[in-house]
């Protein structure tokens, strides 16, 4: 028995050393800042994303969610929303004025992903018509940015959890996924099985720190709805195997070496990007222009300004 315990501890220790990502605290109170830390190659850029899910009640066939004060870090960044069980999705962002774009659902799902949103603090509003007969709508929200490792190879990122709904809060990066439990009743924090780590999470790019802040709308998920999702989280002992972790970590550098340079070149040109009907995770779109760039390119293409 003692040997088993020692062996388990040894494995856990090895696994811990192998992880490129760590978070503290793992069970923050709502609004508490979480420090994400990790190790990579000196100077390496590591893409980090955070996400949470909501179950929104359907009232008179409609759903709505408002997130106030969402802080978007400096570019490059990405903000994605996916809604399921819906007929349509409107995503509004208040950037001084309200900009809104309707998105048609396909098969009851609609997604929007905006890359390189101009930095700032915004209010987001998601709303639309639910699928006929639906009692709730599932919404996934994710924000993504990247950080640079310092000369020692360490990197860190402070995430402000103010307003993030109590429940699971996932942070992905460098091949790892950490599930934070926000709120006292959501103390299950874990690393997932390897199947939960997506290839894209291992991507490395350029970037800047991120902090995300949101406030719950009156309509957003109730605690009991969140608790149901906690049950889906792998228990603590169900962590990566060391081999899986090493494999994931090993792929990070190889997969992303080139995109990093590309993003560095393109980051100044990009502004805001929309990908309709995309499924999360969004494919790397570093070369895509932002929403205004895209629209204007289209417009100027129509105009065909030509010097004569």
């Amino acid at each position: 028995m003692m040997m088993k315990i020692l062996a388990s501890l040894a494995i856990l220790a090895l696994i811990t050393v192998g992880f490129a990502l760590d978070a503290s605290p793992m069970n923050p109170d709502p609004g508490e800042k979480v420090m994400i830390t990790g190790f990579a190659k000196p100077g390496e850029a590591v893409r980090l994303s955070s996400s949470f899910d909501l179950d929104l009640p359907v009232v008179a066939g409609r759903y709505e969610y408002v997130a106030n004060g969402v802080e978007i870090p400096q570019k490059p960044n990405r903000f994605s929303v996916t809604a399921r069980n819906i007929e349509d999705l409107n995503v509004g962002i208040k950037m001084g004025i309200w900009l809104n774009m309707p998105i048609k659902a396909s098969g009851g799902t609609a997604s929007v992903s905006r890359a390189d949103v101009p930095p700032g603090r915004y209010t987001l509003k998601m709303f639309g018509n639910a699928k006929e007969g639906a009692s709730d709508v599932s919404v996934s929200v994710s924000a993504e940015t990247t950080v640079y490792a310092d000369s020692d190879g360490s990197y860190k990122l402070a995430i402000d959890t103010t307003g993030i709904p109590e429940g699971d809060y996932r942070v992905r990066g460098a091949g790892d996924l950490i599930v934070l439990g926000i709120g006292a009743d959501h103390g299950v924090a874990s690393l997932p099985s390897s199947s939960e780590v997506r290839v894209e999470d291992r991507a490395v790019s350029t970037a800047s720190p991120m902090s995300t802040e949101a406030e719950k709308s009156p309509d957003e998920a109730k605690p009991d709805q969140v608790i149901e999702e906690v049950a889906e989280i792998e228990p603590e002992e169900s962590v990566y195997s060391a081999a899986a972790t090493d494999e994931a970590a090993g792929e990070v550098v190889e997969e992303v070496a080139e995109p990093v340079e590309k993003e560095r070149i393109d980051q100044d040109q990009a502004s805001l990007n929309i990908t309709e009907n995309a499924t999360w995770p969004i494919e790397d779109t570093v070369e895509e222009k932002g929403i205004f760039g895209k629209i204007l390119d289209r417009i100027f293409g129509i105009l065909e300004l030509v010097a004569t």
Partner: peptide, 21 residues
């Protein structure tokens, strides 16, 4: 015309404005 210019213009609009597309 540039994207930046249009963005500047959008930011110049009063907050009591809305755009949809």
């Amino acid at each position: 015309l540039s994207s930046d210019m249009l963005m500047d213009f959008v930011m110049m609009l009063p907050p009591e404005s809305a755009v949809a597309f």
